[in-house]
Design a protein around this nucleic acid. Sequence first.
DNA 1: CGGCTTTGACCCGCGC
DNA 2: GCGCGGGTCAAAGCCG
Length: 261
Amino acid sequence: MAALDGGIRNHKVEVLKIELERLRKENEDLRLGLEIMGSKYEVLQAHLQKNMATISPDHGSSQDSNKRPRTEEVSVAKASQVFVRTNPKDKSLTVKDGFQWRKYGQKITKDNPSPRAYFRCSMAPQCPVKKKVQRCMEDSSILVATYEGAHNHEPPHDAPAGGSSYSPDSPIKGLVANFPCPTTVDPFQPTVTLDLTLSGTGTGTGQEKRRPQNFMEDYRKSNCGRVEEYVASLTKDTNFTLALAAAVARSITDQPKPTKA
DNA sequence: CGGCTTTGACCCGCGC
DNA sequence: GCGCGGGTCAAAGCCG
């Protein structure tokens, strides 16, 4: 009887250990996700500084992509990019941001096999805002929307639930809530493109993706010190540890109670 | 019937 | 000057 009791206890301990290990891993992944976001932010800032340097008096001389410097200057001053993850099966190039858009053109561009759609804001007749939408080359489920200009009218009141009325006038605000995979930059700063697909540099077939675990491993190797920093800061966070403890406790209490042994 | 999408033609700037 | 590529125009068709 006592032996049986001990066996059950040992089994429980094992289950708890496994569960703890699973939560630990999940926690680690979340930490790395946080780290990735932080890193993206730094990349963004680096690009920003580089571009600010480029548009200084002798701008344009070092960038071979400056085919249309005049329009480039305008877009550099006012463009912002938003990444939106959509259903890969959904082939429409529509980004629901609360505003009404009228499509006025579509083009296949050289660097991306998927068509680029051109939209104008149709909520006000004189609204100068334009939007370009194109699927991400590496991941066709991601739409890249480039906004140019500022709305000269009030944002829509009937914006989609979740308050995601994105406007270049109000970057960040309202954007995060509804876009599954949002990244934006200040519309009054140079446009920067982030590769959110974390894929290799264009050698893939488009749907090729690195396995998350491999990526995590690479990332861990290259950012070990900084990860440690984040780990330290998170473990110091009492709210975080309390939440983790609550999650562990919950998972334990959710275990089906062994019936009479 | 009005507003929207589609799509081929056109325009414009740049590199060679 | 010509070709290329991105951006825009506008006629035709579709839809509610």
